[in-house]
Amino acid sequence: MMDKNTSELDVEFITTLSSLLNRSDLTELRLENGLTSIHLKRDQNERMAAEKTLPAELQMSVFEQDNLLKSQRAKETIVSPTVGILHFFNSELGFPRQVEAEELLATIHVGLLQLPVRAVNKSVIELAEIQDGQVVEYGTELFQYDSQNLGFML
């Protein structure tokens, strides 16, 4: 990719970079290639804190960690980890439904790559205002869940 002509530094490439940056330990990234350069910098507030509070082996994405931090609130959201095309997994099961912690809810397709969107914990999950096959932005709200009211909902 680095040796590609700079004109080919396309949107897909940049979104992939941004997604990967957000999943990494890096705080910023600068790529220079001839006349063009990209500088990506990430928001460093609660995300960094989240990483410190969770054991690494949990392997939850930064965005799921975001959600975990917010779990004191009544309605929580799961947002898209990247720009891409959303595909529901097990869509025949419909929404709302009860899901297990870590359950795969959807995949976001970035080029050939597919990134997981997983449930944070055992909860009842509802669909946000999105559809299968829709292009989503970084941070687009995908699902809402309410882990406090699990018993009530069942």
Binding site: M1, T16, L17, L20, L21, R23, S24, L26, V110, G111, L112, L113
Partner: peptide, 10 residues
């Protein structure tokens, strides 16, 4: 390419 981009940042 997708894999190596992933590996570079994880």
């Amino acid at each position: 390419q997708m894999i190596s981009l992933q590996e570079a940042f994880v």
